[in-house]
C-alpha cells in the first residue's frame, strides 16, 4: 500500500513531492533516485529565448533567498528541439512543462506547440514571476485576465493544467477562483514574494533588479496561510510550495490543504532535501498508520 499516493487534478502521483519550477535539473539525479518525485516541473519557457536579468541575481538574506533570474530560457523552439527530447529520455516520472507569455495569444501559441509533443503530462501556466516586465505577475494579479487566459488554454488541452499563482496580490482566493472557473485542473502556489536587500555600507541594492523574488525559509508562514486560504476557496487541488525544507514542513502544508508539495530553495541548502522529505513522510505515515489523503485539509 502506498500511503503517500497523491492526486493532482487529472494525475495520480506515486509521491506527493515535486520540484518547484526553475529550481531543479536532471543534474540532481546524480545524487538521488528520481522515483522520489511525484512529478518533474521544468524551468519556465517563453516563446522567444530570454537572456535573463543582469548580475547580481542572488543574495542570501537572514532567512531565505532573493533572486532576480528573469526567466532565462532558450525559448520554445529550442526547448522542443533540444531539452524536451532529453527530458523524455531521462524522466521516468510525469513531466509538467512550465511556460509564460506576454499576451494571451503567446500563451496559446506555446500550448498549441506543446500539445503536438508527446511525453508531457501537463502544463504549469506561470502568471506569477516577479522578475519580468510583461510576462508573469502582470498577468496573474487580475482575476478577469486569469479567467480569460485559463479558459482559452483549458479549451485546448486535456492534459493537466496547473495555474501558478503569486502571493503578491490583495486576494489570492479571488484569483484562484478565477483560474478554477476558467478550467484549471489544479493550482500551484506560491511563487516568490517581493523582496529586497541593500548593502548598508554602499547604499546599493544587493540585486540588479532591486525589488525581486524572495523564497526559502522566511516565506513559509506566508505560503502556509495562502495555501489554507486558497484551499478554503476552491475545489481543485493545490500543489503548495514556499520554504519547505523538511518532512515536518511538508506535513503542515498537507494539513493546510495541499494535495502535493514542491521543494525549491531547500535544494540549495541540501541537494537531498526532496529525498529526505519523502523518506520522512513515509516513516511518519507508517508509524501513525495513516495515508496522506486522510490528512489533507484537516487542520483544526
Amino acid at each position: 500500500m502506498n500511503r503517500l499516493a497523491a492526486s493532482l487534478g487529472r494525475m495520480e502521483l506515486q509521491s506527493p513531492v515535486a520540484v518547484a519550477s526553475g529550481t531543479f535539473g536532471t543534474e540532481y539525479f546524480d545524487l538521488f533516485d528520481q522515483s522520489v518525485l511525484g512529478l518533474y516541473v521544468s524551468k519556465t519557457i517563453t516563446l522567444q529565448a530570454r537572456t535573463g536579468n543582469p548580475p547580481p541575481r542572488l543574495y542570501e538574506t537572514e532567512a531565505g533567498l532573493l533572486n532576480a533570474i528573469g526567466l532565462q530560457n532558450p525559448g520554445l523552439e529550442a526547448f522542443i528541439g533540444e531539452e524536451l527530447p532529453r527530458l523524455r529520455e531521462v524522466l521516468k516520472v510525469p513531466l509538467i512543462v512550465s511556460f509564460s507569455g506576454a499576451s494571451i495569444d503567446e500563451f496559446v501559441q506555446i500550448l498549441l506547440a506543446l500539445e503536438k509533443e508527446e511525453g508531457l503530462a501537463g502544463y504549469e501556466v506561470n502568471v506569477s514571476c516577479p522578475n519580468v516586465e510583461k510576462e508573469g505577475i502582470a498577468f496573474g494579479a487580475d482575476p478577469d485576465v486569469v479567467y480569460a487566459l485559463t479558459r482559452r488554454l483549458a479549451e485546448l488541452t486535456q492534459r493537466e493544467l496547473i495555474v501558478k499563482l503569486s502571493p503578491n496580490v490583495t486576494d489570492i482566493a479571488a484569483i484562484a477562483q478565477a483560474a478554477e472557473a476558467g478550467g484549471a485542473s489544479s493550482l500551484a502556489l506560491i511563487n516568490t514574494l517581493y523582496g529586497m536587500a541593500i548593502d548598508w555600507n554602499t547604499g546599493k541594492s544587493r540585486i540588479s533588479r532591486p525589488v525581486c523574488g524572495y523564497s526559502g525559509i522566511g516565506i513559509k508562514p506566508v505560503a502556509l496561510a495562502l495555501t489554507y486560504k486558497t484551499a478554503q476557496a476552491v475545489r481543485i487541488p493545490i500543489l503548495a510550495m514556499g520554504g519547505i525544507h523538511s518532512w515536518q514542513d511538508a506535513l503542515e502544508f498537507f494539513y493546510a490543504g495541499a494535495a502535493a508539495i514542491a521543494v525549491g530553495t531547500a535544494l540549495y541548502c541540501d541537494p537531498l532535501s526532496a529525498a529526505r522529505i519523502m523518506q520522512g513522510l513515509r516513516e511518519h505515515m507508517e508509524a501513525r498508520g495513516l495515508s496522506l489523503k486522510q490528512i489533507i485539509g484537516t487542520v483544526s
Binding site: G22, G25, Y28, R57, L58, E60, L65
Partner: peptide, 14 residues
Amino acid sequence: AYMACGVGVCHGCA
C-alpha cells in the same frame, strides 16, 4: 559570483 545551486540549474551566478 554569488551562487545558489552550484550545479547549473538556478542560473543565479550568470
